[in-house]
């Protein structure tokens, strides 16, 4: 019996301290009404306003690519392509610079539905619009600008902030250390869609 004790304690310790898959993502609780496409079968569309095209077109494409091409980390259904027809888009991207105050948002994502008010904590949305603040964006490296765009795309699809600095949904103010979505971010999308 006494000989078995250390072995049993070792098993207990192994089970208790075994690394476990616990995901760190937060959801608004609701999502894009018509989904994020279904990779290989059908897709959704995003529209880039002229105000964003001028400054951020390659970065926007890069940010979408980090969400779409994720199979080396986790597969998701996300399938998006740019469209020039705004009405067919479920995510719009624009940029603004409304005054020179340093106390402004870096970026804002708004949620809309036909003839309905939308709060992402209360109901699904038909489309989302991302507004990027040029005043702030210009102070960041290109990689971080792309990270901010990817963060806002995460909001548009239904992800809320979380405090994990290795998640794209960590707010910039929280010390985000990644410029692309990582495992937990994709897992959040897979729960939603």
């Amino acid at each position: 019996m006494n000989k078995k004790l250390p072995l049993l304690f070792a098993i207990v310790a192994m089970i208790v301290f075994l690394p476990t898959d616990v995901f760190a993502y937060n959801l608004f609780g609701y999502k894009l009404t018509n989904g994020v496409g279904n990779w290989g079968k059908n897709r959704q569309y995003y529209y880039v306003h002229d105000s964003a095209k001028t400054y951020y077109k390659p970065l926007i494409k890069g940010a979408w690519d980090t969400w779409i091409h994720s199979s080396h980390i986790v597969s998701t259904p996300i399938s998006f392509r740019e469209t020039t027809n705004k009405k067919s888009a479920v995510v719009e991207l624009a940029s603004f610079s409304n005054n020179d105050s340093k106390h402004q948002y870096v970026a804002i994502t708004s949620f809309f539905r036909y003839q309905k008010e939308v709060e992402p904590w209360e109901s699904n949305w038909g489309w989302a619009k991302i507004d990027l603040n040029r005043f702030y964006m210009k102070n960041h490296l290109k990689a971080d600008q792309q990270g901010t765009i990817a963060h806002e795309i995460g909001h548009a699809m239904g992800l809320a902030h979380n405090g994990d600095s290795f998640s794209i949904m960590c707010p910039l103010a929280g010390g985000r250390k990644t410029a692309r979505p990582l495992r937990d971010d994709y897992e959040g999308i897979n729960v939603l869609y």
Binding site: Y105, V106, A107, I108, T109, S110, F111, F112, E117, V118, E119, P120, W121, E122, Y136, T148, H151, E152, H155, A160, P171, L172, A173, G174
Partner: peptide, 14 residues
């Protein structure tokens, strides 16, 4: 009012 559009804004400094 009855209708609200809720946006999600990101800041740089806390």
């Amino acid at each position: 009012p009855g209708l609200t559009v809720e946006s999600n804004g990101d800041i740089e400094t806390i």
